[in-house]
């Protein structure tokens, strides 16, 4: 039985002269919401793509479900929600779900049932046969989440799942994520919204490709002696800049 879904060790990656990831360690056990927070361009998406095996890392190793990545077969066990809504607009939501279900090798007899389950989770059941081009931004985001859930994966990797979504809907999505956690699933969630960070079980602060700090939200606040994660982030950032300046 796999206990740690993801184990990343000393992952480094650079594009040209820019170091995007610098010796990142990340361990994700079962039943946890792992938050990656940091400003845009900090390297969150690159880290996620490295975990998925879509990016080759320069050094370090990534294991998902005890398999060294990149590995095509393991991808079927990971539900992925990209930063942008990668949906086929001319197709209906059901057709999108069917298509990705087929790619994820969901058995034919199970597919209809899985579509109902995933659509139910994100509250899109009544809108399933509408074309995506007629969807609002929030609906598209929810559909993307449903697609990530189509093969009922144990591991979910969600890149900014709540960006551009109104507060009420964001609340709903977080409720869903917690439900999924309660049935034993784990997920990595990136965000740059600090109040969302508070809802994660464990946080990693990334800035300029470096893991500045990590721990549970409570532990981090205590460590930096501040009241909010936002302040933790600002403080850690200032310390990083100060260190860079000293160099």
């Amino acid at each position: 039985m796999v206990t740690d879904y993801v184990i990343a060790k000393q992952v480094s990656k650079h594009f040209g002269h820019q170091q995007v990831l610098n010796q990142i360690d990340l361990t994700l056990p079962a039943g946890m919401i792992y938050g990656l927070i940091g400003p845009s361009g900090a390297g969150k998406t690159t880290l996620i793509k490295s975990i998925l095996g879509m990016e080759a890392v320069d050094s370090g190793t990534v294991k998902v479900m005890d398999t060294v990545m990149p590995n095509r077969a393991v991808m079927a066990q990971v539900g992925y929600m990209a930063q942008s809504d990668a949906l086929y607009e001319t197709l209906t939501a059901r057709e999108n779900l069917t298509f990705f279900g087929q790619l994820m090798s969901v058995p034919k007899i199970k597919l209809a049932q899985m579509i109902d389950y995933a659509a139910g989770l994100v509250d899109l059941t009544t809108q399933l046969d509408k074309r995506v081009s007629g969807y609002s931004g929030g609906m598209k985001r929810r559909l993307s989440l449903a697609i990530a859930l189509i093969q009922d994966p144990q591991l979910l990797i969600l890149d900014e799942p709540t960006v551009g979504i109104d507060p009420e809907l964001r609340q709903q999505i977080w409720t869903e994520l917690n439900k999924l956690k309660d049935i034993g699933k784990s997920m990595i969630v990136t965000t740059h919204v600090m109040d969302e960070a508070e809802r994660c079980d464990y946080l990693m602060l990334i800035r300029h490709g470096i893991a500045l700090a990590e721990g549970t939200p409570a532990a981090l606040k205590q460590q930096y002696a501040v009241d909010t994660i936002e302040q933790v982030f600002l403080k850690a950032g200032r310390m990083q800049d100060a260190n860079d300046g000293n160099r």
Partner: peptide
């Protein structure tokens, strides 16, 4: 450009 290709490649498809 819409990102669906990248999304496709996040599945086990060859």
């Amino acid at each position: 450009t819409t990102g669906t290709l990248s999304r496709l490649l996040a599945t086990p498809i060859r």
